[in-house]
């Protein structure tokens, strides 16, 4: 179980190999890779800068990873999230979950990216032809995260 917050790019193939190497009990891995888009709200985006809260970011990511481990039978989980200046096509985030069976891998990966979007303290600023602007949070992200809330 690993959390990495870094400015450097990551190699999805190498991360997958490291996660599964020698662990023949794993039956499936789900990977989600988030990328910088070249359009947002009808405007072209030439670059994006991600700010975060060092310390709290790692704590929050470790907490949601621990929550996923409690809720699904996982052999491994990995979250890599980048910060700093990124350009369209660049990788922003990787979420990978490994389990004996596909349901646990798919569901926990979906859960992790949905929760990460509403709990991890990152903020995106986009550079557009109109100037730089902070990205506003979407209500649809809260709705997506809420579906994973356990019944009280």
């Amino acid at each position: 179980m690993t959390v990495k917050v870094q400015s450097e790019d990551f190699d999805v193939g190498a991360e997958l190999a490291a996660m599964t190497g020698g662990k023949t009990g794993i039956g499936g891995v789900t990977l989600f890779v988030g990328l910088v888009r070249d359009m947002a709200g009808g405007e072209s985006v030439s670059a994006m800068t991600l700010e975060h809260y060092p310390g709290m970011t790692e704590r929050q990511l470790e907490a949601i990873e621990a929550e996923a481990r409690e809720r699904w039978p996982l052999d491994d989980a990995l979250i890599i999230h980048r910060y700093g200046r990124l350009e369209p096509g660049d990788q922003i985030v990787l979420v990978a979950t490994a389990s004996a069976h596909r349901e646990a891998a798919f569901e926990s990966c979906h859960f992790l990216i949905d929760w990460l979007k509403t709990k991890a303290p990152f903020w995106k600023m986009e550079a557009t032809p109109e100037g730089e602007r902070w990205v506003e949070a979407k209500e649809s992200d809260d709705t997506a995260a809420a579906r994973w809330t356990k019944p009280a």
Partner: peptide, 28 residues
């Protein structure tokens, strides 16, 4: 956030706390 945990507005604060104020998060 108080001491790096998300909290509601009725959460207590004291002189030794680290308090962060920020807009809704937009990572991922």
């Amino acid at each position: 956030a108080v001491n790096q945990e998300h909290v509601p507005y009725d959460h207590p604060v004291g002189p030794g706390d680290e308090v962060a104020l920020f807009p809704p998060v937009t990572g991922g």
